[in-house]
Design a protein around this nucleic acid. Structure first.
Lengths: 157, 157
DNA sequence: TGATTTTAGTCCTAACACGTACTAATATAA
DNA sequence: TTATATTAGTACGTGTTAGGACTAAAATCA
């Protein structure tokens, strides 16, 4: 009966979890700070960036693409609609669905804000890692994600 | 005058940013879901885990250790205090400071919940990555974080 | 067809999360 | 000492965030 004989605080995987949280936080802090100077929140930016270069999509698709739950998305879309950056249009095929697309103003916002933000973030990444390191990091991150997704939907233990 | 000739959406570093966000989200979702079954929120768990095996610390120290801003921490501590898991005691050396420590009940909570949670998360990590992969991931994450911290406090432009 | 289940989106609640403003206390400077 | 600046923590406003309840519509089943 595998009893915990060792200090749980010494678990090897904690040596990844902490850096994952710290790195994510450091990146997102910079990310959000700059986005705010552009007059948007991170979630709002994500929505704009996702809708950019598309003909629009349903809330559900938008929710999956942005990793924002549908309940949260409603509020984010409300605020973007109030800013007249997006518009909601009931789907004609499925009357439960609603199509979200950028307004002309939203498109203009996207064209300006997206490149600006990418340009802002680029030097931080390029200064931190070489191309091969980025490739390796990407692979490892996706592999780790896999371990958590297999059971997100599937067997429970 | 380095003009943006390429589609910003093709920036190489986006190949890291997306996985970082996706992986963090996947891990944290699982993390938070289990913590909730233990009767705590993620932030509350972080505070308990940080205070465990210590003689307490100030709000500032706690804030830095948990990556929770001081403003948010006030509310988290309020709720933990209401649950009688932590207690606040004014510092005698610096009358601006407040010492936070676990109550007996908080200590008991820590002893039970912390190992339980570690034990829950372990198989996800162990199933996803080998020990060398974990070491490599850790190194790359910390290196990336470094690139964002150098300018967090330091030169501003 | 009618009954059941699933799905899409909204509304609601509790808890974060961040920045700003504020108060009290400490530190520094003149 | 007096004026100034910094620091610790709290209060507040806006905006997420997850989850669960709810409604309407669609899909599936009997």
């Amino acid at each position: 009966m595998s009893v915990q004989t060792q200090d749980p605080g010494d678990e090897p995987f904690l040596k990844i979890l902490r850096p994952l949280v710290e790195t994510y936080s450091a990146v997102m802090r910079k990310d959000a700070q700059h986005i705010r100077t552009l007059g948007l929140t991170s979630s709002q930016f994500d929505v704009i960036a996702t809708l950019g270069d598309t003909n629009g999509m349903t809330c559900k698709q938008l929710s999956e693409a942005t990793l924002v739950t549908k309940g949260t998305l409603t509020g984010v879309l409300d605020r973007l609609e109030k800013k007249r950056l997006i518009e909601r249009e009931p789907s004609r095929e499925d009357r439960r669905s609603i199509f979200i697309r950028l307004t002309a103003g939203g498109e203009a916002c996207f064209q300006q804000v997206f490149p600006d933000h990418i340009h802002y973030l680029k030097p931080f990444f390029d200064g931190a890692l070489t191309a091969p390191e980025m490739a390796a990091l990407r692979t490892l991150l996706l592999k780790l994600k896999q371990g958590f997704q297999d059971s997100t939907e599937g067997e429970k233990r």
